[in-house]
């Protein structure tokens, strides 16, 4: 029997979004691939073509999620076409570097908007739709930097901290209507040592070896976790912050690294 669930991926141009969209499509879901307007639109369209060629149902949307009206319009388009939204996977992820003492106010605000406000608006608008359906799942793909400071990209960490609390609030509020809300706090992936390069924190120095298994995470690990968190098997999972980092964040002063 085909899986008729409809999943929205908020940023299908990010590697986490790409892997998640593929995984959900392969599980038989209809996937709505959203991309922020701009140069990455093409990548989202190309992903849709690939999935469609494999026989999956994929729809492309371009929406910046900048305010309630924008997200409402996106939600309406999906509901008009498919009649429902079952999954929302928030994959907005952008590391804006900057120091607490000097990062301009506007850039901090923009960074908070990109991660936390877009997630908030989607939770309000799509969460309400799911609540009316009496079922649904929201998963935010967040970061371990909702707990661990970066020393290089503080606005990203602020947004991640806010996202954690959004997850908990939404889990309480929407949980009463059959909607589950969870967060995957993703750990280190390839290239994070450059993205989080810091003069004041050595957290990403030899970072691979700080994972007990000495392996980095991948976008496919994110997709796997999303697939599980949104499955019926995870029906009792609500308001959880799932640290998906191989144990990286457990490190206290680098001894005993597995080299």
């Amino acid at each position: 029997m085909p899986n008729r669930r409809v999943a929205l991926v908020s940023d299908a141009s990010h590697p986490f979004g790409v892997a998640t969209a593929k995984r959900l499509a392969h599980d038989g879901m209809t996937v709505v691939l959203n991309g922020p307007p701009g140069p990455r639109e093409q990548a989202v369209a190309a992903l849709a073509l690939v999935l469609q060629a494999e026989g999956h149902d994929a729809l492309v949307t371009v929406n910046d999620m900048k305010d309630t009206a924008a997200v409402t319009s996106l939600c309406d388009d999906i509901v008009t076409k498919y009649g429902r939204i079952d999954l929302h996977v928030h994959t907005h992820n952008r590391i804006d570097r900057g120091a607490v003492a000097s990062m301009p106010h506007g850039l901090v605000r923009d960074s908070l908007h990109f991660h936390a406000k877009t997630a908030f608006l989607c939770t309000q608008v799509i969460g309400q739709r799911m609540a009316a359906q009496g079922e649904g799942c929201i998963v935010y793909v967040g970061s371990i930097h909702g707990d661990k400071p970066t020393g290089s990209a503080f606005s990203y960490a602020l947004a991640q901290g806010a996202l954690q609390m959004l997850c908990k609030e939404a889990a309480l509020e929407l949980g009463r209507s059959g909607v589950r809300v969870n967060l995957i706090a993703m750990g280190p992936v390839e290239g994070d040592d450059m993205r989080f390069q810091s003069d004041i924190s050595d957290i990403y120095l030899d970072y691979q070896y700080k994972v007990p298994s000495a392996t980095l995470g991948t976008a496919e690990d994110v997709a796997e976790a999303v697939a599980w968190a949104t499955s019926d098997g995870a029906r009792y999972l609500n308001g959880a912050i799932i640290r998906l980092d191989g144990g990286f964040a457990l490190h206290y002063m680098d001894h005993k690294m597995k080299r």
């Binding site: 607490v100 909702g146 400071p149 901290g161 954690q164």
Partner: peptide, 13 residues
Amino acid sequence: GGIKMLVRESAIE
């Protein structure tokens, strides 16, 4: 939640 991380980032910086 954001303040929690503002404090931790500010502390190390």
